[in-house]
Design a protein around this nucleic acid. Structure first.
Lengths: 150, 150
DNA sequence: CTTGAAAAATGTCCCGT
DNA sequence: ACGGGACATTTTTCAAG
């Protein structure tokens, strides 16, 4: 991983639709070595994949909520149970097990308040072991990058 | 936006490197209409862009922290000031203005604890108007999807 | 929408340095 | 590792049913 590799990763993180020729020019190499570097970065797992990013509100996901979850008991069984429950809910985009004043931080995206209410009542509150849920509605997204600065 | 468009978006959200032929087969159409649908979805802004997703720990971003920020005063000026300050910090991947018990939720990614400390001391605590910072370190990432379920 | 075709652009690989 | 060149595949556009 030299500086050229970093530059390639930076470029691909911003726009994965650039062709090898364009990237080659921007990093100051020809197509062949650039192509090989990209393949290597993929094989070595630096690049997890290539995805399309959608406009949430345009595809009917206008409401984003971050929910802080506290568990009543911190047993291995309860935590594992919670994780599998969470993994299968399509409304949940993110779930992180954190240290601090609460246990899990969820990122939830839904169409509207009605759908959010149904999510909380029918899907979230049903999960065993949750002692507290504290939700914060996103009013504005100042930043939401998938790109790391290398 | 019919069901076929949704299916196309679902496929591109998971893997943007599929070619038109593959997508066409999966949605049950031929290449031509599939190609036109994708172009239309791009032009209409449903697709914001195509990006490469990196492995955070492999590129030297092992520590992820979510920080809840409270402002001392909620004036327009202070909020705008905070937002511009935040936007320029490379450690910050996400920043959401939220309703609830705090004002902003940050997602911070850094190499190690030393870098995190420097970030807090030199960059975050310097910003005017912050009354409280409560940080949660990510111990495990259960889910981190960029894809909405349509 | 489907089929078919065709040109331009890219991706991919091999070889010489 | 890099660069050049050859070949395969894809993208992109188009016409006709």
């Amino acid at each position: 991983m030299d500086d050229i590799d970093k530059k390639i990763l930076m470029l691909l993180q911003r726009n994965a639709k650039q062709n090898t020729k364009e990237i080659a020019e921007k990093v100051g190499l020809t197509v062949s070595p650039t192509f090989e570097r990209i393949k290597k970065l993929e094989q070595q797992g630096f690049i997890k994949g290539y995805v399309a990013l959608l406009d949430g509100s345009k595809v009917g996901k206008s409401i984003v909520v971050y929910s802080q979850i506290s568990l009543s008991v911190h047993s291995r069984e309860l935590i594992d149970d919670f994780k599998t429950n969470i993994a299968n809910l399509p409304e949940i985009l993110g779930c992180h097990h954190v240290s601090g004043n609460y246990d899990f931080l969820l990122k939830v995206a839904v169409r509207d308040m009605n759908e959010y209410q149904q999510f909380v009542v029918d899907k979230l509150s049903v999960i065993k072991g949750i002692s507290n849920v504290q939700s914060s509605f996103v009013m504005e997204e100042i930043k939401n990058d998938t790109a790391y600065i290398l």
